[in-house]
């Protein structure tokens, strides 16, 4: 199976400080970038020498990055790195002339939302044996192994900083539901969450908040929109909501789900792929099949009408969040790096 399942001890395979490059496609404040930057910080703390490569004019001041940033150059990078981690589609545009190992960090099925030529380029990369694929969920591992035929996969998961994301319960007059994700966006499918919120209102007086980088035309169904909130304000938004309504079609991992859990805000979500690694129906979240709007609505109504269920889910969610520190991801990354050095796959 995939490498994260190996019993090997990190102590035995750790090979000392490594020089590592992380190559970013952009620097927007979003989960797809904050996750690799959190990996960088976790690896830096362990003494690895990390350099982040980012596009010109990109700003990462929204993230407390503990590594230097270099601008992508037009020519292959001459400097030697033990490992290069390509984020997103950067592997095709930013070659390194001498790299010990090359890793692709796969955080979602980006190829499905791109034009055919780009799609083929991405799929070729995922199946190219020169790359070791770092995936954030078992769902993506199944895809790389089963559909792309590449056995060089490590599941590294994702993490949460529970010193930043923690619950802060406060009494509220009404239940508050949170929608997260850009609107409109085909994959995030926030329109379904808005429809659910509207239907919930026929049964319960609820307040509806939304958090996104872009949110076009909120309409009457959304009471408050947090547009591109500063990263230090995001935990506070989760803390003030009872449930996160997520209707994405596909999620590589579902970091917002984990962030919400850590803040005591319960994900009520479609079973959108990667979330199934840590979302467990009735334990820490409520889950419906993707697109099954009636079922998800049923879960929201059940959640709002049953205080025992809410309490049980909250306990489960907080316990789950504690299982996903960034250190766990750093362990998995070090195992992957060490596996590559030892010629393992």
């Amino acid at each position: 199976m995939y490498e994260s399942n190996r019993k090997s001890s990190i102590v035995n395979i750790y090979l000392g400080s490594m020089k590592i490059a992380y190559v970013l496609p952009m620097t927007w404040a979003c989960g797809g970038i904050s996750a690799p930057l959190s990996q960088v910080n976790a690896l830096s703390t362990r003494g690895h020498d990390i350099t982040v490569f980012a596009p010109k004019d990109g700003r990462i001041d929204w993230f407390p990055l503990a590594a230097p940033v270099q601008v992508h150059c037009e020519h292959p990078v001459e400097e030697y790195f033990d490992a290069v981690v390509y984020v997103g589609d950067t592997f095709a545009q930013h070659p390194f002339s001498s790299a010990g190992q090359k890793f692709l960090l796969l955080q979602g099925k980006d190829h499905l939302w791109t034009a055919p030529a780009k799609r083929n380029e991405l799929l070729q990369g995922y199946s190219d044996p020169q790359y070791h694929i770092l995936v954030v969920s078992g769902w993506l591992a199944d895809f790389v192994h089963g559909k792309c035929g590449n056995p060089r996969i490590s599941i590294i998961g994702n993490g949460i900083d529970i010193n930043r994301f923690f619950p802060a319960p406060a009494p509220r007059e009404k239940f508050r539901l949170l929608l997260e994700g850009n609107f409109p966006d085909r994959n995030k499918n926030v329109i379904a969450a808005i429809e659910i919120a509207g239907r919930v209102r026929q049964h319960f007086p609820v307040e509806v908040w939304a958090m996104a980088r872009r949110f076009t035309s909120a309409g009457e169904l959304v009471d408050r929109v947090f547009l591109d909130p500063p990263s230090d304000e995001i935990p506070g938004i989760y803390q003030q909501c009872d449930a996160l309504i997520k209707t994405s079609i596909l999620e590589g991992f579902g970091l917002p789900h984990l962030e919400a859990m850590a803040c005591g805000c319960i994900p009520i979500t479609y079973a959108s792929g990667g979330v199934m690694d840590f979302c467990k129906h009735g334990e820490n979240s409520l889950i419906a099949g993707v697109g099954n709007l009636p079922s998800l609505l049923g879960h929201v109504l059940h959640f709002l009408s049953d205080s025992d269920l809410r309490s049980q889910l909250k306990d489960g969610a907080l316990a789950t969040a504690k299982l996903y520190p960034w250190n766990r991801v750093a362990d998995a990354l070090e195992r992957a790096f060490a596996g590559g050095i030892e010629g393992k796959s």
């Binding site: 085909r186 099949g289 697109g291 079922s295």
Partner: peptide, 24 residues
């Protein structure tokens, strides 16, 4: 809707696919 709720109560995962509207 009623069938899928029953299937979910039996522990199964029921996705909906609306052909003319699905983004994929």
């Amino acid at each position: 809707m009623h069938q899928s709720m029953a299937l979910e109560e039996l522990g199964h995962e029921v996705h909906y696919y609306q052909q003319d509207k699905h983004p994929l």
